[in-house]
Amino acid sequence: MRSAIWENIFRRQDEKLSETALALSHVPVFNGLSRKELREVENIIHQREYQIGETIFQQGDPGLGMYIIIHGQVQIVNNQDPDNLIVYSELNDGDFFGDMALVDDADRSATAMAHAETRLIAFFRPELKDILSRFPSLGNKILMNLAKVIAQRLRKTNDLLIQAQQQDSGEPS
């Protein structure tokens, strides 16, 4: 258990972080980064503001990187058929999306749209490469975190696949 002194020290350190750096620190991809490292990331990320209904990226665009919602709401949709909008998920403050595009440049698999006035942080592949070349240890931390996120998703997908197979073969799940 932390002592009161340590709590104070940690709180003071937290207070020195900007809103953006704090938002970054709560995203799994930036877990375990020191304050200095968070500031380094903060210096090269992009902050964007979107109005309701504005497209953040379009399905089929080249994937470039991830977005973190500071505040607002984002819908991940399939809008290939304008008359039949399929909403995959709705994301809120602190959520992130598009992180797979940090690893490869495959096309975006869905469209992201602002569902409210939204403020986002954009962290893209060129910036990740820049960090990797200038601060390899920081870059490796981010890559390891990214690998963990992807591994967790893969494990969940595997579980869902096993469940589906079991349901198909009539076994109890």
Partner: peptide, 25 residues
Amino acid sequence: SRNFKVQFLRAVPNTYFELTLNLLD
């Protein structure tokens, strides 16, 4: 240069933001 790049991209409309960043890189 990094600061200039961030400032420049801030002025780019949302529609062309990813395109511009990708092209610059």
